[in-house]
């Protein structure tokens, strides 16, 4: 039954996801660490599949062979030290195999030293504020006008006609490709969370506290995410958009964004 469901789920998903921007799996992303995270995710997933084959395989075999209707006579055993040792020790070994690379990636994730650029991200109900530290550039980033119009209850606008519905902003965060960007995150009111799947970053914005994370995007492009911590009625309407551009384009953008212009 499970297999049938998985197969039909897969069939539906291949039929319907054609043309979708995002895959059904976690994105591999555009940073070294997002790729590592993706690999960890797949590694644990494959371990789970392997364990599932063994456990569900034994169970299904038993369900077929050891049925009363098939003439099975019940055995009477209720203990086996050997078996129990095996299924205690093998999982421990598998867990250690999972834990080591996870710890390695985690240690890299936490190493935000020597950034090329620092951005302060502040969560508001319900928009983001970006400040380029030491650059005199700061601005709010709110849901794009097109989505604001379409999102109202019974607005009469079909969301399918709105480009990047609920995932577009007026002013995206702009960063240079290849630069190590340190992100300092805080909030002005309630807790929010700044999440960009392609950068493998999610960090809570906690009022009164400053959290730190970092990323180094290796490809130019526009990467979209959303607030991930419930923050009130418009929690679903404060997307995060990061535009990764060439360093010269970034410098031009930065210069043109200073207040004196």
């Amino acid at each position: 039954m499970i297999q049938k469901l998985c197969l039909s789920a897969l069939a539906i998903l291949f039929a319907s996801s054609a043309g979708a921007e995002w895959e059904l799996n976690m994105p591999r992303g555009v940073t070294e660490l997002s790729a590592e995270t993706y690999n960890l995710h797949m590694q644990v997933f494959y371990w789970c599949c392997a364990i599932a084959v063994v456990v569900f395989g034994a169970m299904i075999y038993s369900l077929v062979k050891h049925r009363k209707a098939a003439g099975a006579k019940p055995a009477n055993f209720s203990h086996s030290m050997t078996a129990e040792m095996i299924w205690t020790i093998i999982p421990i070994i598998i867990l250690m195999i999972m834990a080591v690379p996870s710890a390695e990636t985690l240690i890299k994730l936490e190493d935000g030293r020597k950034p090329d650029l620092t951005v302060v991200v502040t969560g508001y109900q319900w928009k983001w504020h970006y400040e380029y530290l030491g650059e005199d550039v700061a601005y709010y980033s709110s849901l794009a006008r097109t989505s604001v119009d379409a999102r109202r209850k019974n607005s009469g606008i079909d969301p399918n006609t709105v480009e990047n519905y609920l995932l577009d902003v007026d002013n995206p965060l702009v960063v240079p490709v290849g630069a190590k960007v340190r992100v300092l995150i805080t909030s002005n009111d309630v807790i929010h969370a700044w999440w960009v799947p392609d950068l493998a970053i999610k960090k809570d914005a906690v009022p009164g506290f400053m959290n730190e994370t970092w990323f180094r995007a290796e490809l130019t492009g526009v990467y979209r995410g959303q607030c991930a911590e419930l923050c009130g009625k418009d929690h679903g309407y404060m997307p995060v958009v990061v535009e990764v551009v060439e360093p010269t384009a970034f410098q031009n953008w930065l210069d043109s964004s200073r207040p004196e212009n």
């Binding site: 034994a58 038993s62 050891h66 049925r67 099975a72 019940p74 055995a75």
Partner: peptide
């Protein structure tokens, strides 16, 4: 895991309905 394996071992060589 021990719990799940023990349930499967309980079914094993039983006479299930």
């Amino acid at each position: 895991g021990v719990k799940v394996f023990n349930w499967v071992a309980t079914m094993w060589q039983g006479a299930m309905t």
